[in-house]
Structures are given as C-alpha cells and as structure tokens.
Lab assay of single mutants.
Amino acid sequence: NEEPLPEGWEIRYTREGVRYFVDHNTRTTTFKDPRNGKS
C-alpha cells in the first residue's frame, strides 16, 4: 500500500529492471523515491 507519487512524477524501470523516478516538472530523473526519500 504505497502512497501515490507527487504530481508530475512517474515510475519507470531500466532495461535491467532497476526502478527509478521521472520528475516531469523539472525533466529530471532520480533513483531516490520522492515519497519518502529512500532509494
């Protein structure tokens, strides 16, 4: 039961299956979860 991502964020996966987060607001990507700060 995960809380929803902030507005404008999306979860994607690399070809290796590593989860990362896309911030469409700033057009950046990060491996850090914007909901809780954990990677």
Results as ranks from 00 to 15, higher is better:
5 L>D: 02
31 F>H: 09
31 F>T: 10
38 K>H: 15
29 T>S: 12
31 F>L: 11
30 T>I: 04
35 R>W: 05
18 V>I: 14
16 E>A: 14
3 E>C: 12
25 N>L: 09
24 H>Q: 08
35 R>D: 02
13 Y>A: 04
38 K>G: 15
15 R>I: 13
24 H>M: 09
25 N>S: 08
19 R>I: 14
2 E>W: 11
9 W>R: 00
25 N>P: 03
33 D>S: 01
23 D>V: 01
10 E>Y: 06
38 K>W: 14
18 V>P: 01
3 E>G: 13
38 K>E: 15
7 E>G: 08
6 P>L: 05
15 R>H: 13
32 K>M: 07
1 N>F: 13
37 G>T: 11
31 F>K: 07
9 W>T: 01
3 E>D: 13
8 G>N: 08
13 Y>E: 06
6 P>Y: 03
22 V>H: 09
38 K>D: 15
39 S>L: 14
34 P>T: 01
13 Y>V: 08
37 G>D: 15
31 F>V: 07
30 T>R: 03
28 T>L: 09
12 R>T: 05
26 T>F: 05
25 N>F: 08
9 W>V: 02
20 Y>P: 00
28 T>Q: 10
1 N>I: 14
29 T>H: 12
35 R>Y: 04
37 G>V: 10
24 H>Y: 09
11 I>M: 14
6 P>W: 04
1 N>M: 13
5 L>R: 01
14 T>K: 02
34 P>W: 01
35 R>F: 04
13 Y>T: 07
34 P>F: 01
24 H>L: 10
37 G>Y: 11
5 L>I: 06
2 E>M: 11
4 P>Y: 07
31 F>D: 08
9 W>N: 00
37 G>Q: 09
19 R>E: 08
16 E>I: 07
36 N>P: 15
20 Y>M: 05
16 E>K: 14
12 R>Q: 09
32 K>P: 02
29 T>E: 12
24 H>F: 09
39 S>V: 15
29 T>D: 05
15 R>F: 12
16 E>L: 12
39 S>R: 10
22 V>S: 03
15 R>T: 13
12 R>G: 08
19 R>C: 13
29 T>P: 07
16 E>F: 13
18 V>N: 08
23 D>S: 04
11 I>C: 07
11 I>N: 01
26 T>K: 06
11 I>Q: 09
22 V>G: 00
17 G>D: 04
17 G>W: 05
6 P>K: 06
15 R>V: 13
23 D>K: 02
3 E>W: 09
20 Y>I: 08
37 G>P: 11
23 D>H: 09
2 E>Q: 11
32 K>R: 11
8 G>L: 04
28 T>C: 10
10 E>R: 04
21 F>S: 00
19 R>P: 13
7 E>R: 13
16 E>N: 14
23 D>L: 03
38 K>Y: 15
37 G>E: 14
29 T>M: 14
32 K>V: 13
8 G>C: 07
13 Y>W: 12
7 E>V: 12
39 S>Q: 14
38 K>L: 15
22 V>P: 00
29 T>G: 06
4 P>G: 10
12 R>F: 10
19 R>Q: 12
21 F>P: 00
2 E>P: 10
23 D>R: 02
17 G>F: 05
5 L>T: 03
5 L>G: 02
24 H>R: 08
25 N>M: 07
34 P>R: 00
16 E>D: 13
11 I>T: 07
28 T>M: 08
28 T>R: 11
25 N>H: 08
11 I>S: 07
36 N>T: 14
26 T>I: 02
10 E>V: 08
10 E>D: 07
36 N>A: 13
20 Y>H: 02
37 G>F: 09
33 D>C: 00
1 N>H: 14
6 P>Q: 04
35 R>E: 02
27 R>V: 07
38 K>M: 15
4 P>W: 07
14 T>D: 08
9 W>E: 00
7 E>P: 14
38 K>N: 15
27 R>S: 14
3 E>K: 11
13 Y>N: 04
21 F>Q: 00
12 R>D: 04
29 T>Q: 12
33 D>N: 02
21 F>D: 00
33 D>G: 00
23 D>N: 09
7 E>K: 12
25 N>I: 10
24 H>T: 11
32 K>W: 08
9 W>S: 00
23 D>P: 00
39 S>I: 15
26 T>W: 03
8 G>A: 04
18 V>Q: 11
15 R>L: 13
19 R>L: 11
4 P>L: 09
9 W>F: 05
16 E>Q: 13
31 F>C: 09
33 D>Y: 02
26 T>A: 06
8 G>Q: 05
39 S>D: 15
7 E>S: 13
18 V>R: 14
14 T>E: 02
16 E>P: 05
31 F>E: 07
25 N>Y: 08
14 T>R: 01
11 I>W: 04
11 I>R: 05
18 V>E: 09
4 P>S: 09
20 Y>V: 07
39 S>M: 12
3 E>I: 11
3 E>A: 11
7 E>I: 11
7 E>N: 12
35 R>I: 03
33 D>P: 03
33 D>Q: 01
17 G>I: 01
28 T>A: 06
14 T>I: 03
15 R>A: 14
8 G>F: 05
25 N>E: 07
21 F>E: 00
19 R>T: 09
36 N>G: 14
34 P>H: 00
3 E>V: 11
5 L>F: 05
14 T>N: 10
18 V>Y: 11
31 F>G: 06
39 S>G: 15
3 E>M: 10
6 P>E: 04
21 F>Y: 09
